[in-house]
Design a protein around this nucleic acid. Sequence first.
DNA 1: CTACCTGCAAAAGGTTTGCATAGCC
DNA 2: GGCTATGCAAACCTTTTGCAGGTAG
Lengths: 132, 132
Amino acid sequence: MKYSKQRELILQTVTQNPIHPTADAVYEQVRRENPKISLGTVYRNLNFLSELGILRKIPMPVGSDRFDGRLDEHYHMICDCCGRVFDVECDSLQEMDRQIMLRQGFRVLGRHLLLTGVCRECQEKQRDKAAG
Amino acid sequence: MKYSKQRELILQTVTQNPIHPTADAVYEQVRRENPKISLGTVYRNLNFLSELGILRKIPMPVGSDRFDGRLDEHYHMICDCCGRVFDVECDSLQEMDRQIMLRQGFRVLGRHLLLTGVCRECQEKQRDKAAG
DNA sequence: CTACCTGCAAAAGGTTTGCATAGCC
DNA sequence: GGCTATGCAAACCTTTTGCAGGTAG
């Protein structure tokens, strides 16, 4: 891999922001530093870095995919209310893999888990509003 | 909801085929019976029936979304090798919801779990090929 | 009659790609 | 110098949508 300033900026943007940005959000952020960068370059690098395992792509059921600099096994929840994406703290799903192999003979290699719901802050806002 | 022959065909196609078809696959299938049907109508009906809870949409991380006539809580695995989508037999994830609420205060309302891996048949083919 | 549904085709949204140029090593 | 990466813009793929005409109730 050859060095480029663009790639460095893109990588930094994802790893230093725990907000799970979309490609377009990365583009907007990086553009502040390098206004000439193109969206194509952002996509190419995000995909490239994901393939190398330096980033992770989080496919979203609706809207743009997101990117994550955290590499250890973990999952995500998107808040229906504010749209933010959070890391989820829960037990690994690896026990499930064993169960599936025993029952159906499938070898599980990857897991995409995305939960939807309401984050703590939005629950509080809803509560406050209800209370008047 | 007003009756239409198109909607009936679309619903039948999804409920009578356990293959989790894409919208386009439904379209191709339904077209054999009704060659004049449009892809727009297929999409409109699949979405409409999903909103009513008569079908379920399975968002896919790559490629077209799929549709499922099975309504009880269950998950899916896509085989990296043959591309087919299988139902997965495993324990519910509801215990996870409780854990997340306790640890982070998130209220989980929906779950998208898609596993990737190699199905039993493809494992056997790989084994046969390796054995020569 | 009229509200809902359809076919058609165009548009939208997100992402990828071809090509000529620029930059790293 | 050669190979890789970039910027730009066009193409791509899937899905949605506007509209005019058709159909169920």
